[in-house]
Design a protein around this nucleic acid. Structure first.
Lengths: 236, 236
DNA sequence: TAGATTGTTAATCGATTAACAATC
DNA sequence: TAGATTGTTAATCGATTAACAATC
């Protein structure tokens, strides 16, 4: 039998939603825009100048309804009866994602993961640029790396504050061992960095105004294993 | 003025939901279970034997309501008025995630990212085990790597089918260059692999019964850049 | 018992989807 | 015009949340 309760009061998020209504792009949409961008670059490379939502959606791995809805937040950008102009759409998404500016990045921890990121060939023309590298290994400190976007010398963790200040880094990547992650994070935050990408298997504690995205490679595998287990269970 | 439409028909998902009702754990919950597990291991290492949902939630970076809801899908595992027993909860989550079995993994592409994953120190006791490595670089083929869980020799891409069969791999990781991703994927699928973790910046095309999780490191940065841009815009 | 904390409910939210009017 | 495809609507879904009854 149902239980009676008082009516729900307004939550803080209600006010927030009203505040930025209009120009607010939903988080889920933002998360897909980079994929759309990449897909469009591929089409442009094939000298394709026009796509329908159906075609682009298939290439990007979403439904056409979802694609059209997502693009509607970026602004009306297609032509009814015709489709989307690839170059124009690319420009619109680039603008929305902030590719006009190049956001400077400091990578803390140059193990395999840090190196993978630093050597990623897509930097430069896509809104993000590596400006500083930090590692605790004495053998690495002082070595210069020829990255796709620039030549950068690895600094010592002791110089973190100085390096962040001189390089003007605004986004921090934490690819250190788990044991160093929180202290590295604290120092980045103290330097004024408020956007952090965390690869360490640690839940970072940060002030409210700092945004952390965590990518946990191992959890991704565990999630696949979970589903694989269910699949086997069903089969057996 | 509102427009009149016909009433909505039942969707396929409605039937699916009824099918596995009861034992189905929501995707969002599954995605957080590995984090809870890791957090509990940390507590156990500190010889903490009991936690409240409030404490565990704070350590895992979620609200206590969400934590309790998530754990309720794993099964009732706390004691009202007391909290959760760390060891018992660890066992329950491990069982739910499939740590009882060790899911064999083949890593395709031993660049920085593949090496980062292969050398991850958490394998073995957490449900996943590397059983095969593949790379196209002739200098790497045939070299043996001392991984945390085993000694493994890198195989040539030409031997993919043979290696998957002999190793019994059930989960595939694609850490190849973008150009090789789809063909590698196709071959893994042809070998019977139905769970794939894709790090290549490519949307893979797979049959319906194959599950792909894509992790796009660069997109993560772009999403942070987007928010950083908005932040600057608001400030300026 | 009195205090504490879980497990569960119902309300609500953000995201997805199918359908279609608007428009080329 | 007739055919095609976008942009938008309204329904629905899955996930989150606050509140609290159940229970130690």
């Amino acid at each position: 039998m149902p239980i009676r309760r008082a009516t729900r009061v307004l939550r803080p998020s209600d006010a927030a939603r009203i505040d930025d209504a209009g120009k607010g792009i939903p988080e889920a949409t933002i998360g897909r825009l980079p994929t759309y961008h990449r897909t469009l670059v591929n089409l442009a490379d094939q000298s394709i100048h026009t796509v329908s939502s159906e075609e682009l959606a298939a290439a990007a791995g979403v439904t056409s309804a979802r694609l059209r809805k997502d693009l509607s937040f970026v602004g009306p950008c297609g032509v009814r009866g015709v489709g989307y102009e690839v170059e124009a759409l690319l420009r619109q998404i680039s603008a929305a994602l902030g590719y006009a500016q190049e956001w400077p990045l400091v990578i803390c921890g140059m193990g395999h993961l840090g190196q993978a990121l630093a050597n990623y060939p897509g930097f430069g023309d896509r809104g993000v640029r590596v400006v500083a590298l930090i590692d605790a290994d004495p053998a690495k400190i002082g070595t210069t790396h020829e990255l796709p976007s620039a030549r950068i010398t690895i600094s010592s963790p002791g110089d973190l504050e100085a390096v962040v200040e001189s390089s003007g880094a605004l986004i921090g990547v934490i690819a250190t061992p788990a044991s160093a992650a929180q202290s590295t994070c604290d120092r980045l935050v103290a330097c004024g960095i408020r956007s952090i990408l965390n690869f360490a298997p640690v839940v970072l504690t940060v002030p409210e105004n700092v945004r952390v995205r965590r990518v946990d490679l191992f959890s991704e595998l565990q999630i696949l294993a979970f589903h694989e287990q269910r699949r086997q269970g069903v089969t057996a």
